[in-house]
Design a protein around this nucleic acid. Structure first.
Lengths: 123, 123
DNA sequence: ATAATACTTGAATATATGCTCATATTTTCA
DNA sequence: TGAAAATATGAGCATATATTCAAGTATTAT
């Protein structure tokens, strides 16, 4: 079906043995460096279980730092540091009421990506 | 629409001021620790631009280490180290033909997750 | 057998990251 | 006004991670 043609590697003049046509095809569809870094940075935010737990909690409802701290059994400082990361990457938004700051998910994308990852795991 | 009830934080007996009902609701839907770590580990694999580039390249077709090394302008050693990570996390599979090792994406999940992330970015 | 190619691996190093602890900052309450 | 509560922040530390460098396999070619 999809091209599993058994072409032998060819010697590219001057440098290594490579499959020139494959490399060029891949090069064409490759996003630019900025996009690739943004994409990696996006996934890196999800790549920590504390942040995952915070985001998952916020899927259920908005919460203040105290709530999250209590729920996860971690210091408010630790949570606050992570919330800053989530704020800077636009994963969460804040709403201030008195001295309490309520955090919630910034948009549906966050839910979508989380579910996307969870789907991968059930298999 | 969804409950943005303005309940004030209450003093939970003995410890901090928290929104008890919200915390308990969140606690119930929270996946267990093992699942949370697995999920974080999954995303962490995608949280590096080199690995992203390798995976994106393999979306176009299977490739040998040499090809990837040439395409990304990195040493074969560096690529090989990253391919090991991708192998250990079941993102890629290998096929050996003589001394050439061809790598390809393990399954559609990888494509799905990548696209999921890319979708988030275009917005 | 010897050399060359394709890839892998381990140690080392430099950088990034997550949490703690102490210290602000802001708002409420007495 | 002063104390307490909720959150934020900076420095420090311990761990994790990405790449390099040197050396090791495995396979093919001469």
């Amino acid at each position: 079906m999809h091209g599993m043609m058994n072409k032998k590697p060819i010697k590219a003049c001057g440098h290594k043995t490579i499959h020139q046509h494959l490399v060029e095809k891949a090069k064409k569809s490759m996003p630019d460096d900025a996009a690739l870094h943004d994409l990696a940075n996006l996934f890196r935010v999800f790549g920590d279980s504390t942040r995952i737990r915070i985001l998952h909690a916020l899927m259920s409802s908005e919460m203040c730092v105290c709530d999250i701290s209590f729920l996860l059994g971690m210091t408010e400082s630790a949570i606050s540091h992570q919330l800053r990361v989530l704020r800077q990457t636009r994963m969460v938004t804040q709403r201030k009421a008195g001295r309490v700051v309520y955090y919630s998910l910034a948009d549906n994308h966050v839910k979508t990506i989380l579910k996307c990852g969870l789907d991968h795991m059930v298999e």
